[in-house]
């Protein structure tokens, strides 16, 4: 088993021999097999592959929502594969921002309140929190919708709220699972512009997508097939 410290330095994350298996009714599903790659700081990676190839599984592991069956995964110096549930929650709230295909906003809360939610868990819900949430809402172009509820917003607007929310704790990583999967092409372009800008500001982004046009925006493309890395291709320098 690989446990020695990886060469960190310019790496934001490094993944070594990651395996993930599910046992379903006596049958073992290999969702990920021996996945290894490094993520330099400021990289912008699209993860592609057919349905069921393990994209979401990989993203969930990288986002510390799940634990691998075997293998190691370092976020900076921290071996995330070995930490407990509370610690993983802490990593999620300080290092990682999530964006999902179905937005996953909380329907009872307004736009600002949704953006504030991660602050509640990172312990940063202080007097400036509201200002910070409003500022982010303005950045994603929702300055005039602060008091609206998710159901009163379009899909694109909801995804902007989700992006603002993922940024509120100033995470190093942005993980997006098909963020444009539910959006039309016009809105997709707007959301991608937003992500492009975030990457330009230095944030490391991994996004899962089915659409080649979306992948075109990124700097590097990783294609999975049957849980293995089939292609790992860099289109632009990091």
């Amino acid at each position: 088993m690989f446990t020695s410290r990886p060469a960190t330095g310019s790496l934001a994350a490094s993944i070594h021999n990651l395996h993930k298996q599910y046992v379903l009714g006596g049958e073992t599903v290999h969702a990920l097999r021996d996945v290894s790659f490094d993520v330099p700081r400021g990289d912008y990676i699209s993860i592609m592959g057919p349905s069921g190839s393990g994209k979401s599984t990989l993203l969930n592991l990288l986002g510390c929502l799940d634990t691998p069956t075997s293998g190691n995964f370092f976020l900076g110096d921290l071996d995330v594969a070995a930490i407990d549930d509370d610690h993983r929650a802490e990593v999620r709230s300080t290092l990682i921002g999530f964006v999902f295909q179905s937005f996953y906003l909380l329907p009872a809360l307004t736009v600002v309140e949704n953006i504030e939610v991660p602050l509640l868990y990172s312990g940063r819900l202080d007097r400036e929190a509201r200002q910070r949430a409003i500022h982010l809402a303005e950045q994603v172009g929702l300055g005039s919708r602060l008091g609206h509820r998710p159901t009163q917003l379009s899909g694109g607007q909801q995804q902007r709220v989700a992006i603002a929310r993922s940024l509120v704790n100033d995470p190093r990583f942005l993980l997006a699972d098909e963020p444009t999967g539910n959006l039309d092409s016009q809105t997709t372009t707007e959301i991608l512009e937003l992500l492009d800008n975030l990457n330009k500001e230095g944030r490391t982004i991994l996004l899962v997508t089915h659409e080649p046009e979306v992948a075109e925006h990124t700097k590097r493309k990783i294609v999975l097939r049957d849980g293995r890395v089939q292609i790992d291709e860099r289109m632009r320098p990091c």
Binding site: A89, R92, S93, Y121
Partner: peptide
């Protein structure tokens, strides 16, 4: 349940 998942993804610990 969905809300609980969302909150957990956003950094909520079990005790939260």
């Amino acid at each position: 349940t969905r809300e609980i998942g969302i909150r957990r993804a956003l950094g909520a610990k079990r005790h939260d």
